[in-house]
Structure formats: structure tokens, C-alpha cells
Amino acid sequence: MLTHTLGVLGAALSMSLSWPQVIKSCVQRRTRGLSPTACALGVVMPLGWITYGLLSGQEIQVVTNVVTGTAGLAILTALLITQPGMRSPRALRLSAASAGTVLTAVLLSGLAAALPGVRGEQVAPLLGLLLAGVSFLSAIPQPLALLRDRTQDLSGLSPLRWRLGAGACSSWLLYGLLTGQPPVAASAFVGLISATIVCGVLFLRRETRPAPALDQAARWRDSITTRNLAMAGV
């Protein structure tokens, strides 16, 4: 019962965590602070976990990652549209190199599972281990980008997305441990560390909100009134 609850909670948080970022990136068109490599991995990693879920019979993984992969694709598209520099050959090569590893593993896993006498349950652990390893790498770009450049504009990052990510990773960590799925637990543990770092950076460097236009207008009127009184000798 506990494992089922943790799985459902992790799935619910995972499916909802990307949508605050989708709203900020696709609707508000704010993408400053996003790592292109992390966004690319946000598309291909769900493909890997969908394949893992199909091979291992974990339907909850399939449903969850279909939703998260769709959201990841929307965020990546918004990033490429709003920041032309991210479409340069060099930037695309870096993102493609990271994504290509996962896509290759997915393809090879599918081919292996199609061989005579090979069951999906036999291939899934190997794919899961590789995905867990890639999770270590995919968790690095976003926090590294924030820590490396402490003056960059972070207006394109959604704090809610990373808080939900920390909650989702906590649930998947416990789920993986209790169900005996080391790849799931390892991937969630790394994701939890990454999300915690990003949450900490966003909290420490939270933007100072500009004063509302009404308040600015009021201060302008007050300054004019004060100057007029001074000129009148009052």
C-alpha cells in the first residue's frame, strides 16, 4: 500500500512539475537561465524511462514520462525559438551529444528485446542502469550553469517547477528503494540533489520585484508636490 501511494504521488508530482516552466517559457516567453543541455535531456530521458517501463511492465513509468516528455519538448522548443544563440551549430552539437547517448541506448534495448528468447524483463535492468548513469550527467548542467555564472538572468526559471521536482524525486527515491529498483532510486537521488541546489540558488538570488506602476506614479506625484512646496517656501 505504501509503495503504491509513493508511486502515485511521484507520478502525480512528476507529471505536474514541468507545467509551471511550460507556462513561463511558452506562454510568457521567458527562457533566461535555462540550460540547453538540460532541456534536451528533458526530452530524451523520458523516452528512455518510457522504454524501461515498457520492458519491465511498469505502466506508471510509461504514463508519467509520456506527460513529462511532452512538457520537456515544449520547453526545448520555446528555448530554441526565443534564444537564437541556442540554435548555433556548437550549441546544438553539445545538446545532441548528450541526447544521442540516451537515444542509442533506447534503440539498442529495443533491438535486444526483439531477439528470440530474450524477454523485456532481462533487458530492462541494463537500460535502467544506463539511464541512472545518464541521470548523474543530466543533473549537472542546470545547477552548474547557475553556479558558474552568478550574474545571469534567472527570470526564465520557475521556482515552483524545481520545488515540485524535489518532491517528486523524494517520492521516487523511496518508491525505488521499497520496490527493489536501484536504477529508479539512484536516478531519483541524483535528481533530488540537483533540484535542491537549484531551489537554493533561486531562493538566495530571488529577484527584487519592481514596484507596481501605481506605486511609482504615486511617488512621482509626491516628489512633484514636495518640489512645488519647496519652491513656494512652505
Rank of each mutant, 00 (worst) to 15 (best):
G48I: 10
G48R: 13
V67M: 15
A40Q: 07
V63L: 14
L55E: 01
L41I: 09
Q83A: 12
T51S: 07
L79D: 07
I75W: 14
L41Q: 14
Q83W: 04
I50V: 15
P36K: 02
S56M: 04
V43D: 03
W49V: 02
V62L: 09
A71I: 01
L76R: 06
S35D: 10
G48P: 13
V66F: 08
V43A: 06
P84Y: 09
I60F: 05
A71Q: 14
G72C: 02
R30G: 02
Q58S: 15
L47G: 08
P36Y: 06
T31F: 00
T31S: 00
W49A: 13
T37M: 15
L76S: 06
Q61F: 10
L76C: 06
G72S: 02
A78L: 05
T51W: 01
V66D: 01
P46Y: 07
G48M: 14
L47D: 00
V44I: 09
C39D: 11
A74R: 08
L54M: 10
P46M: 11
T77C: 03
V62D: 00
T70Y: 02
A74L: 15
L34P: 02
A40W: 06
R32I: 03
P84H: 08
L34C: 11
Q83Y: 04
W49L: 14
S35E: 10
V62R: 07
G57K: 09
G33W: 08
A40H: 02
L41G: 15
I81F: 06
R30W: 11
A38V: 05
G42Y: 12
W49N: 13
W49M: 13
G72W: 01
L34W: 07
L41E: 11
Q83D: 12
G72M: 01
T82W: 02
W49Q: 13
P36M: 05
L79C: 14
T82M: 08
T37W: 09
G53P: 10
S35G: 07
V62P: 03
T70G: 15
R30L: 12
R30V: 03
Q61C: 06
Y52P: 12
V62Q: 06
Y52M: 10
Y52Q: 13
Y52G: 12
L34T: 04
T70M: 12
G48H: 12
V66R: 07
L55K: 11
I75K: 13
L47A: 05
I81W: 08
G48N: 12
A38W: 15
S56Y: 04
L76Y: 14
A38Y: 14
V63M: 07
P46G: 10
A71V: 04
L79F: 10
I75M: 15
M45W: 00
V43C: 09
P36N: 04
G69Q: 09
V43M: 06
M45G: 06
N65P: 04
V67F: 15
L79G: 05
V67I: 15
A78S: 14
G53C: 03
L47I: 06
A74S: 02
Q58D: 15
G48F: 13
L34I: 15
W49K: 13
L80S: 05
L55N: 04
I50K: 09
V67N: 08
L79T: 03
V63C: 05
M45Q: 12
G53D: 02
L76G: 03
T31P: 00
L41M: 15
T77A: 11
A71W: 01
G72I: 00
P84R: 15
W49R: 14
L54S: 00
G72R: 08
V63K: 02
L41W: 04
Q58W: 11
L41Y: 05
V63G: 02
